[in-house]
Structures are given as structure tokens and as C-alpha cells.
Design a protein around this nucleic acid. Structure first.
Length: 115
DNA sequence: CTCGTGACTCCCG
DNA sequence: TCGGGAGCCACGA
């Protein structure tokens, strides 16, 4: 199963975003890395904007590296947060998401947290 | 071809 | 902990 060879980076990014399971979140950099370019984080942004217009892309599951919502308040911030909370994602007192727990790559090891 | 655009990320202080 | 500055990258006009 090939995984990204003929498709454009944008398409791979879109696929990566769509692959993020509900109740979990992924960072821009992580999506970019999965798509093939860990430095194309900004490209992820553009793809989300373009694809989310006509496609049902879970754009709300993408957050920045700090686990916080990048959208400015009044322009999607509350909407994204609301959607995430609906899926069970919790925010701490600093409005941050525990990537160690809800992070896409880390969600797999949920429960096996080292101590 | 060059230029502008971003919901980013890293480095410093 | 937080903010400012620079770097990076793909894509459309």
C-alpha cells in the first residue's frame, strides 16, 4: 500500500487530517510530518481552509504545537473548542489540551503513560 | 518566472 | 511564562 507518492502534498495533508480519529487532536507539524514534510505546517493551514470549504474535513482536530487553539477568539476559536469538547477533549485551566493524552500519535498509547 | 499569503514552529531574552 | 523576530514551505495569481 503506497502511502503518498503520486498525490500532491496538499492531498496527503487532507488525508492525514481526515485520518485523525474523533476525540483526539493533531498538531499542524504532525500532520505535515505524516504528509511528508515536517516543515510544511503552514501548508496544512492552507489545505484546511481550502478543503474545509467544500469537504467535510475535521479541521477542528488540528491545534498548534502547544496544544492550544490557533484560531483567534471571535473567529472560530469558540467553535473549535466547542466541537472538541463535544468529542470528549478536555481543556485545562490555561485553555490547553494535553497532547500527551489526546495527541493523535500519543492517543494510541493512552493508558500506557510512563511514570 | 516572481510575489504574497498564512489557524506554524523555533530561537532568544 | 510570554512576546517578538526570523525562517520555512507549497500554492495561486
Amino acid at each position: 500500500m503506497d502511502q503518498g507518492e503520486s498525490r500532491s502534498l496538499s492531498e496527503r495533508i487532507a488525508a492525514a487530517v481526515a485520518a485523525v480519529p474523533p476525540g483526539t487532536v493533531a498538531t499542524y507539524g504532525e500532520i505535515a510530518a505524516v504528509a511528508g514534510n515536517p516543515r510544511a505546517a503552514r501548508q496544512v493551514v492552507r489545505v484546511l481552509n481550502v478543503w474545509s470549504r467544500g469537504r467535510s474535513l475535521p479541521w477542528h482536530r488540528i491545534v498548534n504545537r502547544h496544544g492550544t487553539i490557533s484560531l483567534p477568539p471571535g473567529d472560530g476559536y469558540e467553535l473549535q473548542r466547542s466541537l472538541l469538547e463535544s468529542e470528549g477533549v478536555e481543556f485545562d485551566a490555561k485553555d490547553r489540551i494535553d497532547l500527551n493524552r489526546y495527541g493523535f500519535s500519543r492517543a494510541v498509547f493512552r493508558g500506557a503513560a510512563p511514570r
